[in-house]
């Protein structure tokens, strides 16, 4: 007993004062489109087809990057001959739709040389990506507004996301100080924190869990697989893909796995949605219906012969 007491006194407080102060050495890749020549080297090495090129016309080309699919493997950073992809340090990413996680640059192709030059952005990442830091501070300020009860549902994950979700409750991050609690039953839950990809064998269980949660309920999809199916693909015999293929999703938290900070951020965003939806007229703040986002692109089924040179 004495030893336990003295240990606790000696240890003191280990909880991080500001859980968003630490930055990872590598968050999501960031493309410097002005240096990019749309050469496709990064597309060839991307294991989840998060990077895609398209040729809408003979003299036009697009390069898109979806954080929903990105597993943060850093292959593209190393493969880029122009060094146009940087290891970004952004991590507290949480958006309301899959599209907001997508950015797309448009290029003009010179027919004589075949060289592509950047023209402009077709799509930019969603607002919460850029304003997340500002939003966060607001949320933390208002954190005593109410408490949030969270039911975690593993709908097919590899357990990586679960490890990081468990970490949010450890003494260092201590999500209980924000009024967030993990509960044992969906009937007690305001928020379902769902990891994916949703497997065929978990589809029914996930749907039932969703139906068991009382309204208003908020669904947070966690991880690349929960957002898009990730490396396991979308629409295979075993993996249905992202959580939004089965239940409506309010918040997307990408990453493989997302850091505990990012999960906390996603939960704070969910808290905001839950507060708004509990108020007057809140029922109108509905998430996108199931299947609204376009399915994840499927990679052509071919072996990559050498680094960056597909057949």
């Amino acid at each position: 007993m004495f030893r336990i007491l003295s240990k606790s006194l000696k240890t003191g407080v280990v909880t991080e004062k500001d859980p968003f102060s630490s930055r990872p050495p590598f968050g999501f890749p960031v493309i410097d489109f002005n240096s990019c020549t749309a050469c496709d080297e990064c597309v060839a090495v991307c294991p989840t087809a998060a990077l895609q090129t398209d040729r809408p016309a003979a003299d036009r080309k697009t390069l898109s990057l979806s954080y929903a699919l990105c597993i943060q493997c850093r292959e593209c950073v190393e493969a880029c001959p122009e060094r146009a992809i940087h290891p970004g340090r952004e991590f507290e990413v949480a958006t309301h739709s899959r599209e907001q996680l997508m950015q797309r640059g448009s290029f003009v192709v010179d027919p004589a040389t075949g060289r592509a030059s950047f023209r402009g952005m077709d799509a930019r990442p969603g607002p919460s990506l850029e304003e997340s830091a500002a939003r966060l501070k607001e949320r933390i300020k208002g954190r005593l507004g109410r408490s949030l009860h969270v039911r975690q549902v593993d709908a097919g994950s590899c357990n990586g996301c679960e490890l990081e979700i468990i970490a949010t409750a450890n003494p260092v991050f201590d999500l209980e100080r924000f009024g967030i609690h993990f509960v044992a039953s969906p009937r007690h839950a305001d928020v379902l924190l769902v990891t994916g990809p949703v497997t065929r064998n978990m589809e029914i269980a996930l749907r039932r869990t969703y139906e068991a949660a009382p309204e208003p309920r908020v669904v947070v999809a966690v991880g690349a697989c929960g957002c898009s199916g990730g490396i396991f693909g979308e629409g295979t015999y075993a993996s249905l893909g992202g959580v939004d293929r089965v239940v409506p999703v309010d918040v997307y938290v990408p990453g493989c796995p997302p850091r505990p900070h990012a999960i906390l951020n996603g939960l704070l965003v969910a808290m905001g949605i839950h507060q708004a939806r509990s108020g007057p007229g809140g029922a109108e703040l509905a998430p996108q219906p199931v299947g609204a986002s376009p399915p994840s692109p499927h990679r052509p089924l071919m072996p990559v012969l050498a680094r960056g040179t597909p057949e």
Binding site: T48, G156, T199, I231, G233, M302
Partner: peptide
């Protein structure tokens, strides 16, 4: 087998270099 994701089948579909991430 609730979380059967078809990983062994997926290995056959992905380029072998990408199998590492799987």
């Amino acid at each position: 087998f609730y979380v059967h994701k078809g990983i062994e089948k997926r290995f056959e579909k992905l380029p072998w270099r990408h199998g590492l991430f799987l």
